[in-house]
Amino acid sequence: MLCDKCGKEIPKGSAFCNYCGKEVTINISPQEKTSEIRNDDPIPKKISYRKKIIISIAPFLILCLFIVGYLIAAPYISYIQAKSLMNNGEFDKATQAFTNLDGYKDSDELINETNYLKAKHMLKTREYEKAIEMFINLVNYKDSVKLKTESTYLLAKQNSSQDNYASAIELLEQIQEYKDSSDLLQEANYQEGVKQFNAYNFQQATKLFTASSDYQDSEKYLAQAFLLDHFQGIWRDDDGYRKLTFKNGEVTQVLFSGLQDESTYTWSTTLVGKEMHDDNGTVYYLKNDKLIEKDKDSYFGPKSYTKIGNYDDVPPEKLAPQIGMTEQEVMDSKWGLPTHVNKTTTAYGISEQWVYDHYKYIYFENGVVTAIQD
């Protein structure tokens, strides 16, 4: 420390100079200033208000930028993923993904494209019914109408190969001008007509053979179906004592119909020309809306019958007697009521023998059939 008058060095902290007595004014040497500055604690700098604001909102700004970036990038990422699913054949997932994009870019168009590719895949894997449904929903997208027709055609051929001619007919009627559909339709009508003919559904067979009249022997079947359809039904003789029922290739004759002595007989029938022959040797033919019966054993000439019920009025076919039937079930069977009953009562129960015409017998033990003699 130096005296500012005489310039001599005096002890630090002195109030007066020891040499000249001058009141000391503190002068610090450059070295001391440097030393003091170095030895003193650093003075903290003040942060401005603007910087404080920036620092406080910086995290929020960063978060906002992240959210905005995500919102911009997320639909694009989902869009790329949806296209990848479509290209990899995961059509259902792709459709859902494009739907969730809610119109982003060409997502709506790609939904149609995905469904179109799925329908083509189903056509390739022979899932024709599903393919048809999808092509219908695609309306006029690309060649969907043409591919729907092709799917219908292939499904009809598949049904025909599986003898499902009724379904094939329904399909082929929609596309008669496509490829050889007209020829396939004619064949399907014929084959289904044969099935219905053999199942005794002669009215339906008549319609089908009419539709395939130029195919193979459809005309022959048509004539037979028409004739057999007229035979089928319920006929009663003019005296009112006999009733004939033609159904499913059989004729059931009921004698003394409605009386206590009613008897029932059933025989198989065969169409010979325009006549119906049964296994009992009786011949039937139609004349002026009447059914004429020629019995080989009859001495009274042909019998005339009037139709009293159509095919739909014929009751369900009765069962033949079987072991284990009850008495009531036998009475409701084809054999009906017996002409005579022989009953034996023993310590073990009741035995019965039911006697029918043509040497036919049914044996009961305690009301249950145990033996049948035909």
Results as ranks from 00 to 15, higher is better:
Ala188Tyr: 09
Met134Trp: 05
Leu184Pro: 14
Val139Lys: 12
Ser182Asn: 10
Thr149Leu: 06
Ser161His: 06
Ser161Phe: 04
Met134Ile: 03
Lys148Val: 11
Ser144Lys: 11
Asn137Leu: 14
Tyr165Gly: 00
Gln162Gly: 09
Ala168Tyr: 02
Met122Thr: 13
Ala166Cys: 02
Ala188Lys: 08
Glu192Thr: 08
Gln174Met: 11
Glu170Gln: 07
Leu172Ile: 02
Leu155Met: 10
Asn137Lys: 14
Arg126Asn: 13
Glu177Gly: 01
Thr125Arg: 03
Glu127Trp: 07
Asp163Val: 01
Asn159Tyr: 10
Ile175Ser: 10
Asn164Tyr: 05
Ser167Arg: 05
Thr125Asn: 08
Tyr128Trp: 07
Lys120Met: 13
Leu154Phe: 14
Ser144Ile: 10
Glu133Gln: 15
Leu185Arg: 08
Ile132Lys: 06
Asp143Phe: 10
Glu127Leu: 10
Tyr128Leu: 04
Ile169Val: 01
Lys179Phe: 01
Glu192Tyr: 15
Met134Cys: 03
Ser181Pro: 03
Asn140Phe: 11
Ser182Pro: 03
Ser144Trp: 12
Leu171Thr: 00
His121Tyr: 15
Met134Asn: 04
Asp143Gln: 13
Leu155Lys: 10
Asn159Ser: 08
Ser182Gly: 06
Gln176Ala: 04
Lys148Ala: 12
Glu150Ser: 15
Ala131His: 08
Glu127Tyr: 07
His121Phe: 13
Leu172Cys: 04
Leu138Ser: 12
Thr125His: 07
Ile169Leu: 00
Ala166Asp: 03
Phe135Met: 06
Lys148Asp: 09
Ser181Val: 00
Lys157Thr: 02
Tyr128Ile: 04
Glu173Tyr: 01
Asp163Leu: 01
Ile175Asp: 09
Ser181Asn: 01
Glu192Phe: 15
Asn189Asp: 14
Ser181Leu: 00
Leu172Gln: 03
Tyr190Met: 04
Gln174Val: 09
Glu150Thr: 12
Asn164Arg: 11
